[in-house]
Amino acid sequence: HNLTITQGKLFFHYNPKLCLSEIHKMEEVSGTKGRQERNDIALKTNGDQASCENELLKFSYIRTSFDKILLRWEPYWPPDFRDLLGFMLFYKEAPYQNVTEFDGQDACGSNSWTVVDIDPPLRSNDPKSQNHPGWLMRGLKPWTQYAIFVKTLVTFSDERRTYGAKSDIIYVQTDATNPSVPLDPISVSNSSSQIILKWKPPSDPNGNITHYLVFWERQAEDSELFELDYCLKGLKLPSRTWSPPFESEDSQKHNQSEYEDSAGECCSCPKTDSQILKELEESSFRKTFEDYLHNVVFVPRKTSSGTGAEDPRPSRKRRSLGDVGNVTVAVPTVAAFPNTSSTSVPTSPEEHRPFEKVVNKESLVISGLRHFTGYRIELQACNQDTPEERCSVAAYVSARTMPEAKADDIVGPVTHEIFENNVVHLMWQEPKEPNGLIVLYEVSYRRYGDEELHLCVSRKHFALERGCRLRGLSPGNYSVRIRATSLAGNGSWTEPTYFYVTDYLDVPSNIA
């Protein structure tokens, strides 16, 4: 807008934040220059609390790290170098490059900038070799853009010569660093050979998330399962459950009422301010606690030095998902009996873990797994792929695949051998790939016309006998059925096997 004052003059007093240069501009645009008398524009009460600059400061050096910015700028000295009290560095987070010096300023003089007072450097006698002032900004957020400017702080001049310097606002972004852990990993099994893994992005990506790394490792069953005799009275049979499938998407929606109208769909109840505040506090606490764990609990591995020492970490090797089922080394339970199943799973520490690289999504279907087997899954978020990966501390989750139908069934015939004193040795093959492992066998036998009897055969007993022995049988026709019990439950009964026990007292003698 054009402003013209045809008559009258300007009068400025007691404006401590208004620089004289701005008042002189007002004289020019209003056409009143030359009308004012000496005392109409006070030299001592206008701009006496402001830094009124008329020179431009330029930054000469900028260096960044993930949490620091090192700045240096060209030296500046007023005509009387004693008038320079120091520099004021202003900075704040700036997602967009549209910041002005006066953003967030209120009537009390406060604003949204963080201000650092910096002492002037030592003055050199040689004007050509003056030290460049600077400042190291610490405690910054990774991968965050900051708006920065600097200006001088000078003393009051009796001659009211307006001098000083100020830089333009520059924008500097800190470097990326390792992201925080992925949030809320959930693993479920939808079949006997697959596990579905879902997660949420890290709360602090500290860069642009480029991919996720998912490692999985087959877990050995508890050692007590191999040692305890679950045929003993009072000892509860062990059981394991597989990871249940995901709930429906509708039930997972946030901010939804727990109660549904019987007449149909209901609208979600909005969260109160107290609920939102509580969630923010919980989120802040979780982030602080995660940072504490990362800094205190997890110790970084030592990389190899120039002395030739090897990095103890196993090298990563990509495998196809079809090879995942046989990740671990199978060892027989008892070496003397080769027909026992290889369900003991000690994992070799030198073995390469299978892994998958996930790009542009937060889910993965891990296939080719062994049925009813526990897996430990390790999830890392990465925001750099080359020249070397920059990934987060791992988040861990466990899951067990679903049982395989008929995996616990005894394959092959049940054979028998009759000894003296009416002892019958029953023999059968253990299931080759049971659900988890076989903890015991149930032997059901009966003599024709009598009630059915049951015998429990422990895992250890089966390994020693290759089956079991029935003792003290009365003469007669017998039928026997056997079924295995694994961590997933009972298998199917075998087809009945028949044998006849004679009275050993009636056996004919070869003595003449």
Rank of each mutant, 00 (worst) to 15 (best):
S203V: 06
S203E: 12
S203P: 03
P205W: 04
N208R: 06
H211K: 09
F215V: 13
W216C: 09
E217V: 04
E217C: 13
A220M: 06
A220N: 10
E221F: 11
D222V: 11
E224R: 13
C231F: 03
L232V: 10
P238I: 06
P238C: 10
P244R: 11
E247N: 14
D250N: 15
S257Q: 08
Y259F: 07
E260R: 13
S262A: 07
S262W: 03
E265P: 05
E265F: 10
E265S: 07
P270L: 04
K271C: 14
S274P: 10
S274R: 12
Q275F: 09
K278A: 14
L280T: 15
E281P: 04
E282N: 02
F285Q: 11
K287R: 07
E290S: 10
H294S: 03
V296F: 03
V296T: 09
P300E: 09
R301E: 04
R301P: 14
R301T: 14
T303C: 06
T303P: 14
G308K: 02
A309T: 03
E310I: 05
D311K: 15
R316W: 15
G322F: 02
G322C: 09
V324W: 07
V324F: 06
V327E: 09
V329T: 03
V331K: 06
T333F: 11
A336L: 12
P338M: 12
P338F: 11
N339G: 07
S341A: 04
S344K: 07
V345R: 08
T347F: 06
P349E: 00
P349T: 10
E350I: 06
H352Q: 12
P354T: 12
F355M: 11
F355A: 13
V358L: 06
K361I: 07
G368Q: 08
L369M: 09
R370A: 13
H371I: 10
F372P: 00
Y375C: 01
R376Q: 04
I377H: 02
D385M: 06
P387T: 14
E388P: 09
R390Q: 07
S398M: 05
A399I: 10
R400P: 01
T401V: 04
E404K: 11
A407L: 10
D408F: 00
E417N: 03
E417H: 03
I418H: 04
I418P: 07
I418K: 06
F419K: 08
E420Y: 13
N421L: 11
V423W: 05
V424P: 01
V424Y: 05
P431Q: 01
K432G: 02
P434A: 05
L437A: 12
V439H: 09
V439F: 09
E442R: 07
V443T: 02
R446A: 07
E452T: 05
L453P: 03
L453S: 06
C456S: 03
H461E: 05
A463V: 10
R466W: 03
R469W: 09
G472Y: 09
S474I: 11
N477E: 04
Y478C: 00
S479A: 07
V480T: 09
R481F: 03
I482G: 00
R483Q: 04
A484N: 00
G489M: 09
G491F: 02
T494Q: 02
F499I: 15
Y500W: 13
V501K: 03
T502R: 10
Y504Q: 13
D506E: 05
D506I: 11
